[in-house]
Design a binder for these strands. Structure first.
Lengths: 213, 213
DNA sequence: CAGCATCCGCTTTGATACTG
DNA sequence: CAGTATCAAAGCGGATGCTG
């Protein structure tokens, strides 16, 4: 990318991450962790392969991404975020918050991947991070189920189905987002087509038994 | 811009603000408030005029910017952020925080404008927002002095020299940023060429006389 | 002068095909 | 699996011209 040539934190940041696709690559690496080239391609529907290669080099040169040749038996290249790249999480969380309204509009022809729910889940459930006991949610939308654990002061997500989730939600992504954001009650979402199984209170905001402060 | 076509808050946000120059236009409107076309051009060195016109229309269509034909005597068009555009402040603050490290490198040939210090000042001094009594800083770097008021729970900035600032800082922008960020003491910055006049404690973090909770 | 629109050369992007 | 290579189309930057 051509530099803006401005001595300003925003423009210098954009010199590194402002190019098309760059922040989405960071999104993928943030939610999926270290990934192979083809995993990135799958999580970035629409990207041209030459651009992915290009952007990975660019992010590497900028110190946001590093590549690691996985050990003997696997023999593949993994791309992972450096600490500097990880540090973009806060900014991307703010962007998810800002963009929440845009998700009300139907997906239409837009592509969707189940793991794209991970960042919104982290953002929306952050307020319930100190739940005690912790709860495990399983989100089923799109291609792949995703598990979210809320408690102990943080929200963590991981791929796949939970072992014994407190609550399983299965629906179009829009309804799941509505429930996570607290804009839709489970009952309302259920009326619109969401199926759930388990403890409905698991998605209620901060329903901790002992109220502190 | 071409849409990413992904049902994801980040990519849908980037469909609106991901184009080149867009976030910098928002920066200008955030720190300068409602601005004329030519003011925007001045604050965005390097932008081509057709692109500025283009992006303003795009941001208007996206509901982030609105244009207002100023009342009778002025007879000019003002561009201002809508509430939706203003709501990007949090995300841009995070970007300023992330990009702080990038400002350590010398400006070199990069352009600079005095009002670009406003957002970093807000971000770095946010921790001292509850100072009592409030303090007024005047920052002199680049083309235009800028005034920062810290106290009463917020940090506000405005163009021009302060009326009776508690502290005036005059230096290359890099040194002023270092001091505001708390990475450089006033004495250290002074040794590197910063000139100041007034109460040095005005930039010390949270030196409130009565310490609460 | 403020606020654009037009034109033109260059760079970036996107789609597809191909390779170690 | 992890990319190159190629090429058309779109976007960008710079200069200039137009209009109230």
């Amino acid at each position: 990318m051509r530099s803006y040539g401005q001595y300003c934190a925003i423009s210098r940041s954009l010199d590194l991450i402002g190019d098309r696709w760059n922040l989405l690559i960071v999104r993928e690496l943030l939610v999926r962790g270290p990934s192979r080239y083809t995993d990135l391609q799958y999580g970035l529907p629409g990207i041209a392969t030459n651009l992915l290669a290009d952007r990975l080099r660019q992010l590497e040169a900028g110190g946001l991404v590093e590549r690691e040749d996985a050990p003997a038996p696997i023999a593949t290249t993994l791309f992972r975020l450096t600490a500097r790249g990880e540090a973009l999480r806060g900014m991307l969380s703010e962007l998810v918050r800002w963009g929440a309204d845009l998700m009300v509009e139907e997906p239409g022809d837009d592509a969707f991947r189940g793991h794209w729910l991970a960042m919104p889940a982290e953002v929306y459930l952050a307020g319930s991070a100190d739940r005690d006991p912790p709860v495990t949610l399983e989100l089923r939308a799109g291609d792949e189920p995703w598990t979210v654990e809320v408690g102990g002061g943080s929200v963590t997500t991981r791929p796949g189905a939970g072992e014994e989730p407190d609550l399983v939600l299965e629906a179009e992504p829009r309804l799941i987002l509505g429930v996570l954001a607290g804009k839709l009650s489970l009952a309302e979402a259920a009326a619109l087509g969401l199926a759930y199984e388990g403890d409905p209170e698991a998605v209620l905001p901060a329903a901790a038994p002992s109220s502190a402060s």
